[in-house]
Design a binder for these strands. Structure first.
Lengths: 240, 240
DNA sequence: GTAAAGCCGTACGCTTCCGTACGGAAATAA
DNA sequence: TTATTTCCGTACGGAAGCGTACGGCTTTAC
Protein backbone atom coordinates (compact mmCIF):
# COMPACT_ATOMS: atom_id res chain seq x y z
CA UNK A 1 0.00 0.00 0.00
CA UNK A 2 1.75 3.10 -1.24
CA UNK A 3 0.59 6.14 0.61
CA UNK A 4 3.75 8.18 0.26
CA UNK A 5 2.16 10.62 -2.14
CA UNK A 6 3.70 14.01 -1.40
CA UNK A 7 0.47 15.81 -0.62
CA UNK A 8 -0.39 13.26 2.02
CA UNK A 9 2.45 13.98 4.37
CA UNK A 10 0.56 16.72 6.13
CA UNK A 11 -2.84 15.10 6.09
CA UNK A 12 -4.09 14.88 9.63
CA UNK A 13 -7.59 13.69 8.98
CA UNK A 14 -7.69 10.02 9.84
CA UNK A 15 -10.02 8.99 7.07
CA UNK A 16 -7.90 10.65 4.43
CA UNK A 17 -4.82 9.16 6.02
CA UNK A 18 -6.29 5.69 6.00
CA UNK A 19 -7.35 5.75 2.38
CA UNK A 20 -5.74 3.35 -0.02
CA UNK A 21 -3.46 5.06 -2.51
CA UNK A 22 -5.87 4.70 -5.39
CA UNK A 23 -8.69 6.20 -3.35
CA UNK A 24 -6.50 9.06 -2.34
CA UNK A 25 -5.71 9.60 -5.99
CA UNK A 26 -9.42 9.74 -6.68
CA UNK A 27 -10.14 12.19 -3.93
CA UNK A 28 -7.09 14.41 -3.67
CA UNK A 29 -7.62 16.47 -6.83
CA UNK A 30 -10.88 17.72 -5.44
CA UNK A 31 -9.68 18.57 -1.98
CA UNK A 32 -9.43 22.12 -0.89
CA UNK A 33 -7.69 23.20 2.29
CA UNK A 34 -9.91 25.38 4.36
CA UNK A 35 -9.99 27.08 7.70
CA UNK A 36 -13.09 26.35 9.71
CA UNK A 37 -14.12 29.21 11.91
CA UNK A 38 -16.20 28.62 14.99
CA UNK A 39 -19.94 28.74 14.27
CA UNK A 40 -19.28 28.22 10.59
CA UNK A 41 -22.23 26.35 9.15
CA UNK A 42 -21.46 23.11 7.40
CA UNK A 43 -24.89 21.61 6.83
CA UNK A 44 -28.43 22.96 7.00
CA UNK A 45 -31.43 20.66 7.63
CA UNK A 46 -33.28 19.71 4.45
CA UNK A 47 -30.83 21.54 2.26
CA UNK A 48 -28.51 19.87 -0.22
CA UNK A 49 -25.06 19.07 1.08
CA UNK A 50 -22.58 21.19 -0.84
CA UNK A 51 -19.30 19.83 0.47
CA UNK A 52 -17.88 16.96 2.43
CA UNK A 53 -15.59 18.22 5.18
CA UNK A 54 -12.62 16.25 6.40
CA UNK A 55 -11.87 17.94 9.69
CA UNK A 56 -8.24 18.16 10.76
CA UNK A 57 -8.48 20.42 13.77
CA UNK A 58 -11.61 21.59 15.53
CA UNK A 59 -14.94 19.94 16.21
CA UNK A 60 -18.20 19.85 14.29
CA UNK A 61 -21.48 19.61 16.17
CA UNK A 62 -24.29 17.75 14.48
CA UNK A 63 -27.56 18.98 15.95
CA UNK A 64 -31.01 17.52 15.38
CA UNK A 65 -33.78 20.07 15.23
CA UNK A 66 -37.53 19.59 15.13
CA UNK A 67 -40.45 21.70 14.01
CA UNK A 68 -40.79 23.45 17.35
CA UNK A 69 -37.11 24.29 17.31
CA UNK A 70 -36.22 21.88 20.04
CA UNK A 71 -32.66 20.94 19.40
CA UNK A 72 -29.91 18.76 20.75
CA UNK A 73 -26.54 17.58 19.63
CA UNK A 74 -26.61 14.05 18.29
CA UNK A 75 -22.92 13.71 17.60
CA UNK A 76 -19.58 15.38 17.11
CA UNK A 77 -17.08 15.01 14.32
CA UNK A 78 -13.38 15.76 14.44
CA UNK A 79 -10.25 14.55 12.77
CA UNK A 80 -11.44 10.96 12.99
CA UNK A 81 -14.26 11.48 10.55
CA UNK A 82 -16.09 13.47 7.97
CA UNK A 83 -19.32 15.35 7.51
CA UNK A 84 -21.89 14.63 4.82
CA UNK A 85 -22.91 11.14 5.91
CA UNK A 86 -26.21 11.31 4.03
CA UNK A 87 -24.18 11.27 0.81
CA UNK A 88 -22.80 7.93 1.88
CA UNK A 89 -26.35 6.67 2.08
CA UNK A 90 -27.18 7.96 -1.36
CA UNK A 91 -29.06 10.98 -0.13
CA UNK A 92 -28.21 14.48 -1.23
CA UNK A 93 -29.52 16.52 1.63
CA UNK A 94 -28.71 16.99 5.29
CA UNK A 95 -31.13 15.98 8.00
CA UNK A 96 -29.44 17.84 10.77
CA UNK A 97 -27.79 21.12 11.42
CA UNK A 98 -24.01 20.92 11.44
CA UNK A 99 -21.55 23.64 12.31
CA UNK A 100 -18.12 24.18 13.76
CA UNK A 101 -18.47 24.09 17.50
CA UNK A 102 -14.76 24.60 17.93
CA UNK A 103 -12.92 26.31 15.10
CA UNK A 104 -10.09 24.69 13.23
CA UNK A 105 -9.15 23.61 9.77
CA UNK A 106 -9.55 20.78 7.32
CA UNK A 107 -10.14 19.88 3.73
CA UNK A 108 -13.30 19.78 1.84
CA UNK A 109 -14.48 18.52 -1.52
CA UNK A 110 -17.64 19.18 -3.48
CA UNK A 111 -20.45 16.74 -2.77
CA UNK A 112 -20.75 15.77 -6.41
CA UNK A 113 -17.09 14.87 -6.64
CA UNK A 114 -17.37 12.80 -3.50
CA UNK A 115 -20.36 10.91 -4.81
CA UNK A 116 -18.55 10.27 -8.06
CA UNK A 117 -15.48 8.96 -6.23
CA UNK A 118 -17.67 6.66 -4.15
CA UNK A 119 -19.28 5.35 -7.27
CA UNK A 120 -15.93 4.45 -8.70
CA UNK A 121 -14.32 2.82 -5.72
CA UNK A 122 -15.68 -0.01 -3.58
CA UNK A 123 -12.85 0.39 -1.12
CA UNK A 124 -13.66 4.06 -0.67
CA UNK A 125 -17.28 3.14 -0.11
CA UNK A 126 -16.24 0.63 2.50
CA UNK A 127 -14.17 3.21 4.30
CA UNK A 128 -16.78 5.94 4.44
CA UNK A 129 -19.43 3.41 5.43
CA UNK A 130 -17.34 2.58 8.46
CA UNK A 131 -17.15 6.25 9.27
CA UNK A 132 -20.91 6.56 9.00
CA UNK A 133 -21.37 3.52 11.19
CA UNK A 134 -19.06 4.91 13.83
CA UNK A 135 -21.10 8.09 13.86
CA UNK A 136 -24.31 6.14 14.14
CA UNK A 137 -22.98 4.29 17.17
CA UNK A 138 -22.08 7.62 18.70
CA UNK A 139 -25.60 8.89 18.12
CA UNK A 140 -27.11 5.83 19.76
CA UNK A 141 -25.01 6.34 22.85
CA UNK A 142 -25.91 10.00 22.88
CA UNK A 143 -29.53 8.88 23.00
CA UNK A 144 -28.63 6.60 25.90
CA UNK A 145 -26.84 9.34 27.80
CA UNK A 146 -29.63 11.83 27.14
CA UNK A 147 -32.18 9.47 28.56
CA UNK A 148 -30.34 8.03 31.50
CA UNK A 149 -27.38 10.10 32.54
CA UNK A 150 -27.34 13.12 34.82
CA UNK A 151 -26.11 16.49 33.76
CA UNK A 152 -22.65 16.01 35.23
CA UNK A 153 -22.23 12.66 33.54
CA UNK A 154 -23.29 14.04 30.21
CA UNK A 155 -21.08 17.07 30.55
CA UNK A 156 -18.11 14.90 31.43
CA UNK A 157 -18.86 12.71 28.45
CA UNK A 158 -18.94 15.69 26.16
CA UNK A 159 -15.67 17.07 27.45
CA UNK A 160 -14.01 13.72 26.86
CA UNK A 161 -15.35 13.48 23.33
CA UNK A 162 -14.11 16.99 22.59
CA UNK A 163 -10.75 16.27 24.17
CA UNK A 164 -10.33 13.20 22.00
CA UNK A 165 -10.65 15.44 18.97
CA UNK A 166 -8.44 18.32 20.06
CA UNK A 167 -4.69 18.63 20.19
CA UNK A 168 -4.71 20.55 23.41
CA UNK A 169 -6.38 20.26 26.79
CA UNK A 170 -8.12 23.60 26.32
CA UNK A 171 -11.73 23.64 25.20
CA UNK A 172 -12.63 27.12 23.97
CA UNK A 173 -16.35 27.19 24.63
CA UNK A 174 -18.80 29.21 26.65
CA UNK A 175 -21.18 27.62 29.10
CA UNK A 176 -23.98 28.75 26.87
CA UNK A 177 -22.87 26.58 23.98
CA UNK A 178 -22.23 23.57 26.15
CA UNK A 179 -25.76 24.01 27.44
CA UNK A 180 -27.22 24.17 23.94
CA UNK A 181 -25.47 20.98 22.92
CA UNK A 182 -26.58 19.08 25.96
CA UNK A 183 -30.06 20.55 25.87
CA UNK A 184 -29.84 21.89 29.42
CA UNK A 185 -29.79 25.25 31.15
CA UNK A 186 -26.76 27.45 30.88
CA UNK A 187 -26.85 27.90 34.64
CA UNK A 188 -26.80 24.16 35.11
CA UNK A 189 -23.60 23.90 33.14
CA UNK A 190 -22.03 26.70 35.16
CA UNK A 191 -22.76 24.92 38.42
CA UNK A 192 -21.52 21.58 37.13
CA UNK A 193 -18.30 23.06 35.79
CA UNK A 194 -17.79 24.72 39.12
CA UNK A 195 -18.08 21.42 40.81
CA UNK A 196 -15.56 19.94 38.38
CA UNK A 197 -13.19 22.79 39.09
CA UNK A 198 -13.49 22.46 42.84
CA UNK A 199 -12.64 18.80 42.42
CA UNK A 200 -9.51 19.68 40.48
CA UNK A 201 -10.72 18.17 37.24
CA UNK A 202 -10.61 21.31 35.15
CA UNK A 203 -9.63 24.93 35.28
CA UNK A 204 -11.82 27.61 33.79
CA UNK A 205 -11.71 31.07 32.51
CA UNK A 206 -14.13 33.14 30.53
CA UNK A 207 -14.98 31.35 27.34
CA UNK A 208 -12.60 28.48 27.95
CA UNK A 209 -11.96 25.52 30.15
CA UNK A 210 -8.99 23.23 30.39
CA UNK A 211 -8.93 19.59 31.33
CA UNK A 212 -6.37 18.91 34.02
CA UNK A 213 -7.39 15.49 35.28
CA UNK A 214 -8.83 13.46 32.50
CA UNK A 215 -8.99 10.29 34.53
CA UNK A 216 -11.28 11.97 37.04
CA UNK A 217 -13.53 13.19 34.26
CA UNK A 218 -13.70 9.68 32.87
CA UNK A 219 -14.76 8.49 36.25
CA UNK A 220 -17.61 10.96 36.35
CA UNK A 221 -18.77 10.00 32.86
CA UNK A 222 -18.58 6.37 33.86
CA UNK A 223 -19.88 3.92 31.33
CA UNK A 224 -21.64 6.61 29.36
CA UNK A 225 -18.30 7.26 27.75
CA UNK A 226 -16.23 4.72 25.91
CA UNK A 227 -18.23 2.40 23.74
CA UNK A 228 -18.42 4.57 20.62
CA UNK A 229 -14.72 5.29 21.02
CA UNK A 230 -13.86 1.61 21.29
CA UNK A 231 -16.04 0.83 18.31
CA UNK A 232 -14.42 3.56 16.26
CA UNK A 233 -11.05 2.08 17.03
CA UNK A 234 -12.21 -1.37 16.08
CA UNK A 235 -13.80 -0.24 12.84
CA UNK A 236 -10.80 1.79 11.81
CA UNK A 237 -8.23 -0.84 12.60
CA UNK A 238 -10.00 -3.53 10.64
CA UNK A 239 -8.71 -4.31 7.19
CA UNK A 240 -10.79 -2.97 4.37
CA UNK B 1 -40.68 -3.50 -13.04
CA UNK B 2 -41.95 -7.03 -12.82
CA UNK B 3 -42.76 -7.89 -9.24
CA UNK B 4 -45.48 -10.40 -9.95
CA UNK B 5 -43.35 -13.30 -8.83
CA UNK B 6 -45.72 -15.71 -7.10
CA UNK B 7 -43.97 -15.71 -3.78
CA UNK B 8 -44.17 -11.95 -3.57
CA UNK B 9 -47.90 -11.66 -3.44
CA UNK B 10 -48.03 -12.12 0.28
CA UNK B 11 -44.94 -10.16 1.13
CA UNK B 12 -45.89 -7.48 3.56
CA UNK B 13 -42.47 -6.20 4.43
CA UNK B 14 -42.04 -2.94 2.63
CA UNK B 15 -38.39 -3.38 1.81
CA UNK B 16 -38.96 -6.75 0.24
CA UNK B 17 -41.96 -5.34 -1.57
CA UNK B 18 -39.98 -2.46 -2.94
CA UNK B 19 -37.13 -4.56 -4.26
CA UNK B 20 -36.50 -4.65 -7.95
CA UNK B 21 -37.32 -8.01 -9.48
CA UNK B 22 -33.71 -9.01 -9.91
CA UNK B 23 -32.95 -8.18 -6.29
CA UNK B 24 -35.91 -10.17 -5.16
CA UNK B 25 -34.61 -13.05 -7.22
CA UNK B 26 -31.30 -12.74 -5.42
CA UNK B 27 -32.84 -12.65 -1.99
CA UNK B 28 -35.91 -14.84 -2.18
CA UNK B 29 -34.20 -18.23 -2.28
CA UNK B 30 -32.68 -17.53 1.10
CA UNK B 31 -35.77 -16.25 2.82
CA UNK B 32 -37.41 -18.26 5.50
CA UNK B 33 -40.82 -17.45 6.92
CA UNK B 34 -40.70 -17.23 10.63
CA UNK B 35 -42.92 -16.39 13.55
CA UNK B 36 -41.41 -13.85 15.88
CA UNK B 37 -42.48 -14.35 19.44
CA UNK B 38 -42.43 -11.49 21.89
CA UNK B 39 -39.07 -11.19 23.67
CA UNK B 40 -37.43 -13.27 21.00
CA UNK B 41 -33.83 -12.12 20.72
CA UNK B 42 -32.72 -10.99 17.29
CA UNK B 43 -29.32 -9.45 17.97
CA UNK B 44 -26.93 -9.53 20.89
CA UNK B 45 -24.37 -6.74 21.45
CA UNK B 46 -20.89 -7.61 20.20
CA UNK B 47 -22.02 -10.92 18.81
CA UNK B 48 -22.10 -11.77 15.12
CA UNK B 49 -25.38 -11.15 13.39
CA UNK B 50 -26.77 -14.50 12.31
CA UNK B 51 -29.80 -13.42 10.31
CA UNK B 52 -31.36 -10.39 8.77
CA UNK B 53 -35.02 -10.11 9.74
CA UNK B 54 -37.61 -8.56 7.50
CA UNK B 55 -40.45 -7.91 9.89
CA UNK B 56 -43.97 -8.23 8.57
CA UNK B 57 -45.99 -7.96 11.74
CA UNK B 58 -44.75 -7.01 15.17
CA UNK B 59 -42.12 -4.60 16.37
CA UNK B 60 -38.43 -4.99 17.10
CA UNK B 61 -36.82 -2.86 19.80
CA UNK B 62 -33.22 -1.89 19.30
CA UNK B 63 -31.72 -1.14 22.69
CA UNK B 64 -28.34 0.37 23.39
CA UNK B 65 -26.63 -0.97 26.48
CA UNK B 66 -23.49 0.17 28.24
CA UNK B 67 -21.03 -1.42 30.59
CA UNK B 68 -23.02 -0.52 33.69
CA UNK B 69 -26.12 -2.01 32.14
CA UNK B 70 -27.82 1.30 31.58
CA UNK B 71 -30.08 0.75 28.65
CA UNK B 72 -32.50 2.60 26.45
CA UNK B 73 -34.28 1.98 23.21
CA UNK B 74 -32.64 3.78 20.30
CA UNK B 75 -35.13 2.74 17.65
CA UNK B 76 -37.89 0.42 16.57
CA UNK B 77 -38.23 -1.65 13.44
CA UNK B 78 -41.40 -2.96 11.90
CA UNK B 79 -42.68 -3.83 8.50
CA UNK B 80 -41.03 -0.75 7.03
CA UNK B 81 -37.53 -2.04 7.63
CA UNK B 82 -35.09 -4.73 8.52
CA UNK B 83 -32.69 -5.66 11.26
CA UNK B 84 -28.99 -6.24 10.80
CA UNK B 85 -27.99 -2.74 9.76
CA UNK B 86 -24.35 -3.29 10.70
CA UNK B 87 -24.13 -5.75 7.82
CA UNK B 88 -25.07 -2.92 5.51
CA UNK B 89 -22.05 -1.04 6.81
CA UNK B 90 -19.76 -3.97 6.25
CA UNK B 91 -19.66 -5.00 9.87
CA UNK B 92 -20.53 -8.50 11.00
CA UNK B 93 -21.57 -7.89 14.56
CA UNK B 94 -24.36 -6.13 16.37
CA UNK B 95 -23.71 -3.11 18.55
CA UNK B 96 -27.05 -3.13 20.25
CA UNK B 97 -29.50 -5.53 21.74
CA UNK B 98 -32.47 -6.24 19.51
CA UNK B 99 -35.53 -8.28 20.32
CA UNK B 100 -39.19 -8.55 19.51
CA UNK B 101 -40.98 -6.04 21.64
CA UNK B 102 -44.29 -7.00 20.11
CA UNK B 103 -44.58 -10.46 18.66
CA UNK B 104 -45.39 -11.10 15.05
CA UNK B 105 -43.95 -12.70 11.99
CA UNK B 106 -41.60 -12.07 9.13
CA UNK B 107 -38.92 -13.53 6.95
CA UNK B 108 -35.30 -13.91 7.64
CA UNK B 109 -32.22 -14.82 5.71
CA UNK B 110 -28.75 -15.81 6.86
CA UNK B 111 -26.36 -12.91 7.25
CA UNK B 112 -23.84 -14.42 4.87
CA UNK B 113 -26.42 -14.74 2.13
CA UNK B 114 -27.49 -11.18 2.67
CA UNK B 115 -23.93 -9.91 2.45
CA UNK B 116 -23.41 -11.90 -0.71
CA UNK B 117 -26.55 -10.49 -2.28
CA UNK B 118 -25.48 -6.97 -1.39
CA UNK B 119 -22.13 -7.59 -2.97
CA UNK B 120 -23.78 -8.61 -6.20
CA UNK B 121 -26.37 -5.88 -6.53
CA UNK B 122 -25.81 -2.13 -6.40
CA UNK B 123 -29.55 -1.51 -6.41
CA UNK B 124 -30.01 -3.75 -3.41
CA UNK B 125 -27.24 -1.90 -1.64
CA UNK B 126 -28.93 1.38 -2.43
CA UNK B 127 -32.19 0.13 -0.99
CA UNK B 128 -30.82 -1.21 2.27
CA UNK B 129 -28.70 1.89 2.68
CA UNK B 130 -31.86 3.93 2.61
CA UNK B 131 -33.31 1.70 5.26
CA UNK B 132 -30.24 2.15 7.40
CA UNK B 133 -30.40 5.89 6.93
CA UNK B 134 -34.04 6.00 7.93
CA UNK B 135 -33.17 4.12 11.09
CA UNK B 136 -30.33 6.50 11.80
CA UNK B 137 -32.66 9.47 11.52
CA UNK B 138 -35.00 7.76 13.94
CA UNK B 139 -32.17 7.26 16.40
CA UNK B 140 -31.18 10.91 16.19
CA UNK B 141 -34.71 11.99 16.99
CA UNK B 142 -34.86 9.51 19.83
CA UNK B 143 -31.79 11.25 21.20
CA UNK B 144 -33.60 14.55 20.83
CA UNK B 145 -36.73 13.31 22.57
CA UNK B 146 -34.70 11.69 25.34
CA UNK B 147 -32.94 14.93 26.04
CA UNK B 148 -35.72 17.42 25.69
CA UNK B 149 -39.16 15.85 25.89
CA UNK B 150 -41.17 15.05 28.99
CA UNK B 151 -42.31 11.58 29.87
CA UNK B 152 -45.78 12.10 28.40
CA UNK B 153 -44.38 13.41 25.16
CA UNK B 154 -41.98 10.52 24.83
CA UNK B 155 -44.62 7.98 25.68
CA UNK B 156 -46.98 9.46 23.12
CA UNK B 157 -44.19 9.39 20.55
CA UNK B 158 -43.55 5.74 21.27
CA UNK B 159 -47.19 4.79 20.97
CA UNK B 160 -47.40 6.51 17.61
CA UNK B 161 -44.31 4.78 16.33
CA UNK B 162 -45.68 1.43 17.45
CA UNK B 163 -49.07 2.19 15.97
CA UNK B 164 -47.48 2.99 12.62
CA UNK B 165 -46.05 -0.50 12.59
CA UNK B 166 -49.06 -2.46 13.75
CA UNK B 167 -52.19 -3.48 11.92
CA UNK B 168 -54.43 -2.87 14.88
CA UNK B 169 -54.92 -0.13 17.43
CA UNK B 170 -54.06 -2.50 20.24
CA UNK B 171 -50.58 -2.41 21.71
CA UNK B 172 -49.97 -5.56 23.73
CA UNK B 173 -47.40 -4.35 26.21
CA UNK B 174 -47.06 -4.01 29.95
CA UNK B 175 -46.18 -0.73 31.60
CA UNK B 176 -42.97 -2.34 32.69
CA UNK B 177 -41.72 -2.81 29.15
CA UNK B 178 -42.75 0.64 28.06
CA UNK B 179 -40.77 1.94 31.01
CA UNK B 180 -37.68 -0.03 30.07
CA UNK B 181 -37.76 1.28 26.52
CA UNK B 182 -38.14 4.87 27.58
CA UNK B 183 -35.68 4.50 30.40
CA UNK B 184 -38.15 5.69 33.03
CA UNK B 185 -39.94 4.29 36.07
CA UNK B 186 -42.70 1.79 35.58
CA UNK B 187 -44.86 3.83 37.94
CA UNK B 188 -44.29 6.90 35.82
CA UNK B 189 -45.66 5.11 32.79
CA UNK B 190 -48.70 3.97 34.75
CA UNK B 191 -49.54 7.50 35.79
CA UNK B 192 -49.03 8.89 32.29
CA UNK B 193 -51.17 6.20 30.70
CA UNK B 194 -53.84 6.96 33.24
CA UNK B 195 -53.80 10.55 32.22
CA UNK B 196 -54.09 9.52 28.58
CA UNK B 197 -57.01 7.31 29.43
CA UNK B 198 -58.79 10.00 31.39
CA UNK B 199 -58.40 12.24 28.40
CA UNK B 200 -59.99 9.65 26.14
CA UNK B 201 -56.86 9.00 24.14
CA UNK B 202 -56.49 5.33 24.95
CA UNK B 203 -58.20 2.50 26.72
CA UNK B 204 -56.25 0.08 28.86
CA UNK B 205 -56.40 -3.32 30.29
CA UNK B 206 -53.88 -5.55 31.88
CA UNK B 207 -50.97 -6.02 29.52
CA UNK B 208 -52.54 -4.06 26.72
CA UNK B 209 -53.59 -0.62 25.66
CA UNK B 210 -55.57 0.54 22.69
CA UNK B 211 -55.30 3.82 20.86
CA UNK B 212 -58.70 5.41 20.43
CA UNK B 213 -57.81 9.00 19.55
CA UNK B 214 -54.63 9.06 17.57
CA UNK B 215 -54.91 12.74 16.76
CA UNK B 216 -54.89 13.61 20.44
CA UNK B 217 -51.82 11.47 20.99
CA UNK B 218 -50.10 13.22 18.13
CA UNK B 219 -50.88 16.48 19.78
CA UNK B 220 -49.23 15.37 23.00
CA UNK B 221 -46.15 14.15 21.16
CA UNK B 222 -46.01 17.42 19.30
CA UNK B 223 -43.00 17.96 17.12
CA UNK B 224 -41.09 15.13 18.75
CA UNK B 225 -43.01 12.86 16.43
CA UNK B 226 -43.03 13.09 12.68
CA UNK B 227 -39.69 13.92 11.18
CA UNK B 228 -38.30 10.38 10.97
CA UNK B 229 -41.63 9.25 9.57
CA UNK B 230 -41.61 11.94 6.91
CA UNK B 231 -38.03 11.15 6.06
CA UNK B 232 -38.79 7.46 5.76
CA UNK B 233 -41.56 8.25 3.36
CA UNK B 234 -39.32 10.49 1.32
CA UNK B 235 -36.49 7.98 1.18
CA UNK B 236 -38.75 5.13 0.24
CA UNK B 237 -40.64 6.99 -2.43
CA UNK B 238 -37.50 8.13 -4.20
CA UNK B 239 -36.44 6.25 -7.31
CA UNK B 240 -33.52 3.93 -6.81
C1' DG C 1 -58.74 -24.99 43.51
C1' DT C 2 -55.07 -23.17 45.52
C1' DA C 3 -50.75 -21.11 45.21
C1' DA C 4 -47.60 -18.40 42.92
C1' DA C 5 -46.28 -15.00 39.84
C1' DG C 6 -47.07 -11.02 37.25
C1' DC C 7 -49.10 -6.62 36.72
C1' DC C 8 -51.08 -2.34 38.12
C1' DG C 9 -52.55 1.60 41.28
C1' DT C 10 -50.98 4.59 44.51
C1' DA C 11 -48.14 7.03 47.78
C1' DC C 12 -44.15 9.69 50.05
C1' DG C 13 -39.99 11.84 50.48
C1' DC C 14 -36.31 13.22 47.76
C1' DT C 15 -33.11 14.55 43.86
C1' DT C 16 -32.38 16.78 39.79
C1' DC C 17 -33.04 20.21 36.96
C1' DC C 18 -35.97 23.90 35.07
C1' DG C 19 -37.53 28.86 34.35
C1' DT C 20 -36.35 33.04 35.43
C1' DA C 21 -33.82 36.63 36.82
C1' DC C 22 -30.40 39.94 38.50
C1' DG C 23 -25.94 41.83 39.14
C1' DG C 24 -21.17 41.96 38.29
C1' DA C 25 -17.05 41.01 35.70
C1' DA C 26 -14.69 40.74 31.42
C1' DA C 27 -14.19 41.63 26.72
C1' DT C 28 -15.33 44.41 22.75
C1' DA C 29 -16.80 48.46 20.20
C1' DA C 30 -17.18 53.37 19.68
C1' DT D 1 -12.63 56.32 28.02
C1' DT D 2 -16.93 55.19 27.89
C1' DA D 3 -20.59 52.48 26.40
C1' DT D 4 -22.16 48.13 25.13
C1' DT D 5 -22.20 43.48 24.79
C1' DT D 6 -21.11 39.02 26.28
C1' DC D 7 -20.40 35.85 29.78
C1' DC D 8 -20.53 34.03 34.35
C1' DG D 9 -22.06 33.45 39.34
C1' DT D 10 -25.82 32.92 42.07
C1' DA D 11 -30.45 32.52 43.74
C1' DC D 12 -35.39 30.91 44.48
C1' DG D 13 -39.49 28.63 43.84
C1' DG D 14 -41.32 24.97 41.40
C1' DA D 15 -41.97 20.99 38.20
C1' DA D 16 -40.77 16.52 36.84
C1' DG D 17 -39.58 12.30 37.75
C1' DC D 18 -36.87 9.03 40.84
C1' DG D 19 -36.41 5.20 44.34
C1' DT D 20 -38.94 2.61 46.97
C1' DA D 21 -42.61 0.28 48.62
C1' DC D 22 -47.00 -1.89 49.62
C1' DG D 23 -51.32 -3.87 48.61
C1' DG D 24 -54.67 -5.63 45.57
C1' DC D 25 -56.10 -7.58 41.40
C1' DT D 26 -55.44 -10.71 37.48
C1' DT D 27 -53.45 -14.37 35.21
C1' DT D 28 -50.80 -18.52 35.10
C1' DA D 29 -48.90 -22.75 37.09
C1' DC D 30 -49.48 -26.76 39.57
Amino acid sequence: MNDASPLRTDVRNRLLAKMAAHDWALVAPHLESITLKERQVVEVPNKPITHVYFVETGVVSVVAVNAEDHRIEVGVIGKEGMTGHPLVFGDDRAQHSAYMQIGGSGRRMPAAAFVEAMKQSPSLRALVLKSAQAFMIQTAHTALANGRAKLEERLARWLLMAHDRLDSDAVPLTHEFLAVMLGVRRAGVTVALHSFERRGMITTRRGQLTLVNRAAIEQVAGSFYGIPEAELKRLMSEPL
